[in-house]
């Protein structure tokens, strides 16, 4: 059997009113691959991955995930895909009326019905252990620092053991040591579970460590594509400027 790309975006267009953000993105990833998206602030990185999970409706183009064209699915069919995807929001988006424990439990319980109570608890602990925040289990999101918020959001994205994880700036706002730990975590998830990931980041160390391939977004198009080493030595000065 031919290996089919897990995510396959073709000619994706998206605009908000008159403001054209994406003008024909093409992107495909194979199983177990990590793709990093770079690009300046406001270039449409977050919009791209929101289109992937149907949070933003694509204007034109095709998006296929697990071989299904998601732009034409109804809500139930879309949800069947969504439960196989972990999504980490740029600003965390933790449910602020719930404690950390409830945030994770809520997501988990709606994901896998009839889990035993002890299973739930051990999964929560495992996810928190992964991001190094076991002791914050009973805190409310408002009591967490910005970086801790991020890491809980990461824990919430990975707790359902998704086949695809979309990370929106997983290491921004973290100190270099924690950032490296998160990058290592992303790498280990990829190795252990063959997770396919798309990572949006401005952190070149993270891009180097956890990405197999890097795409650079500019003016609504993929401007450059290649491995870290290839792009670092690119002839294009603009591309190289990311690597300083």
């Amino acid at each position: 059997m031919e290996t089919q790309p897990i995510i396959n975006i073709k000619n994706l267009h998206k605009s908000f009113g008159e403001n054209k953000i994406l003008k024909g993105i093409n992107l495909s990833t194979n199983k177990g691959e990590s793709v990093v998206i770079l690009g300046r602030s406001g270039s449409g990185k977050s919009v791209t991955i929101k289109c992937l999970v149907g949070l933003a409706k694509a204007d034109k183009g095709s998006i296929s995930i697990f071989g299904k064209e998601i732009t034409s699915l109804n809500n139930n069919e879309l949800n069947a895909i969504r439960v196989r995807i972990g999504f980490m929001f740029q600003n965390g988006a933790l449910y602020d009326s719930m404690s950390v424990r409830q945030n994770l439990r809520f997501t988990l319980k709606h994901h896998t019905q009839d889990l035993a109570e002890s299973d739930i608890e051990s999964k929560i602990m495992e996810a928190l252990d992964n991001v190094g925040l076991k002791e914050s289990i009973d805190k409310m999101p408002s009591e967490l620092s910005g970086g801790m918020n991020k890491r809980i959001a990461l824990a919430r994205a990975i707790i359902i053991k998704p086949e695809i994880i979309l990370y929106d700036e997983p290491t921004s706002g973290l100190d270099t040591i924690t950032a490296r730990e998160i990058s290592e975590l992303i790498l280990s998830l990829q190795e252990k579970y063959k997770t396919t990931s798309i990572i949006i980041t401005h952190d070149m160390a993270c891009a180097k460590m956890s990405g197999n391939r890097i795409l650079i977004l500019k003016d609504g198009l993929i401007n450059a594509e290649g491995t870290y080493e290839e792009l670092e030595k690119s002839k294009d000065e603009w591309v190289r400027s990311f690597f300083i």
Partner: peptide, 20 residues
């Protein structure tokens, strides 16, 4: 106010991607 702030901080989107 409650739902408004959930909407603005993407908590409603977060539910949606969790298939809730």
């Amino acid at each position: 106010a409650e739902l408004g702030s959930m909407k603005v901080t993407e908590q409603i989107d977060a539910m949606e991607v969790s298939a809730i």
